[in-house]
Design a binder for these strands. Sequence first.
DNA 1: GTTATTGTATTAGGCACTTAGTACAATAAT
DNA 2: ATTATTGTACTAAGTGCCTAATACAATAAC
Lengths: 122, 122
Amino acid sequence: MEWKLTDDRPIWMQLSEQMARRIVAGQYPPGSKLPPVRELAADAGVNPNTMQRALAQLESDGLAVSNRTAGRAVTEDAAAIESVRRTMARRITKEFLSAIADLGYTREDALALLKEEEDTHG
Amino acid sequence: MEWKLTDDRPIWMQLSEQMARRIVAGQYPPGSKLPPVRELAADAGVNPNTMQRALAQLESDGLAVSNRTAGRAVTEDAAAIESVRRTMARRITKEFLSAIADLGYTREDALALLKEEEDTHG
DNA sequence: GTTATTGTATTAGGCACTTAGTACAATAAT
DNA sequence: ATTATTGTACTAAGTGCCTAATACAATAAC
C-alpha cells in the first residue's frame, strides 16, 4: 500500500493511520524494526517533523515503541495488534453502515451496493 | 440527523457534506426552501461565514441555488439529486471495501463484520 | 576511539481555517 | 413607504498544520 495523502485532514494523522494499517495488516510484523523517521518521511514526501509526529501518535496507540538510537520497532504484543485491528474494522464497518443509512438506503440496499461494487472491480 | 462535527477536517466541508446528505435523503425535498444562512449557522453552532462557505460549495455541487434576498432553495432537478445520491453511495462503498482490505480482511470477513454489526446494533 | 545513525527538540515562517464584527444591496413583508 | 430579511463581502485576529533549518545526546557501527 502506497501513501495516500489528501489535504483535507492533517497529514500526520493520515500517516499515523496508514502506518497503523501496515502494522495490523502484517507488513511490519510484531517486534520488527521500523525504518528511520527520516527515511519514512522521504518515502512519503513529507517533512521529518511531520512523520515524527505521526510516529509519536503510533506510540500513544501502543503499536510502536521507541528505543532512541536503536530506532523504532513494532510492539511485540501481537494480541494488542490484533485488538487494534478488530477495533479498526468495527469502527470502519459502523461508519459505513451509518453513512449508507444517512443517504436513506436500507440494509438490503447496502448489501446490493457491496455486491455491485465487487462485481465491478473484481 | 444532528450536526456531527470533528476538528480534524474543515468545518465548512463537513457542513456541506451533511447538508448534501439531508438533501439526497429527502429531508429537504427538491425545490424546497432552505433555512437562512444565519439560522443554519446558529443551529450548527458555527460562524455564519463558515456556513456561507458550506452552502456555496453546495451550489457548486449543483444541489442548491441562491435567489439572493428570496433565500436559498434545493435544486428542482430530482434526477441530479438522485445521481449525487448514487455517486455518494458508491464512493462510500468503495472506500469501505478498500479500508477493510487494507486491514488484511477478505470479502467474506467484510460480510461477517457487517452481519455482526447489524446483530449488535439492531 | 571515531564516525555515522537515530530519535528528539527548537525556532521561524507561510498558509488555511475559523471566529468576530461590520457593512451593503436587493427584496420580501408589513 | 418603511422595515425586516437575506445573501454576500470585507477586514482583523487567533489557531493549528506544515515546512525548513538546525542542533543535540545517545548509541550503533566501524
